[in-house]
């Protein structure tokens, strides 16, 4: 029986968002069910108006420019495109965190259409039950 992974995308930096999108793809390849829950800075990265600054990482700062250059030069898809592709291919659901959405006055319509719904933590934990939770 295929398993289940639920990922909390809390960090808003590209390195972590990308890691989450890559793991989601790998889970799709293994026919797993995946719930991705965006909160804090992760949620801000899903705003349609792109008002949140895209930062590669808070770690390894001296490498940042080089890494960004490599990603661009080699035409690596963005984390969002990768996540969209995974969602088109497999059983992936994407949620926004209700707490953060309320605090920041963000509505579902303000977010990228990849978002299926805005849900509270109780619902998310209930969805995650019986599977693994990754906090990224």
């Amino acid at each position: 029986m295929p398993g289940k992974i639920s990922i909390l995308m809390v960090s808003g930096t590209i390195d972590k968002l990308m890691a989450g999108a890559v793991i989601t793809s790998g889970a799709v390849a293994n026919d797993m069910e995946i719930n991705v829950f965006f909160s804090f800075f992760g949620l801000l990265n899903l705003k349609k108006d792109n008002s949140f600054p895209q930062t590669l990482s808070y770690e390894g700062v001296p490498m940042t420019d080089q890494m960004m250059k490599v990603l661009k030069e080699k035409n690596v898809p963005s984390w969002l495109d990768m996540l969209k592709n995974a969602k088109e291919t497999g059983n992936v659901k994407v949620y926004g965190c209700a707490l953060m959405a309320d605090l920041l006055g963000v509505k579902k319509d303000d977010l990228d259409p990849i978002v299926d719904d805005i849900v509270g933590v109780g619902e998310f934990v209930s969805m995650a039950e019986g599977g693994q939770i990754l906090f990224i």
């Binding site: 890559v22 793809s25 799709v28 390849a29 995974a86 088109e88 291919t89």
Partner: peptide, 17 residues
């Protein structure tokens, strides 16, 4: 060719579906 992990695998799975 030219795509990076997990690109080729995902494209294969898409084609398979």
């Amino acid at each position: 060719r030219g795509a990076f992990c997990p690109g080729p695998l995902m494209e294969l799975i898409k084609a398979y579906k």
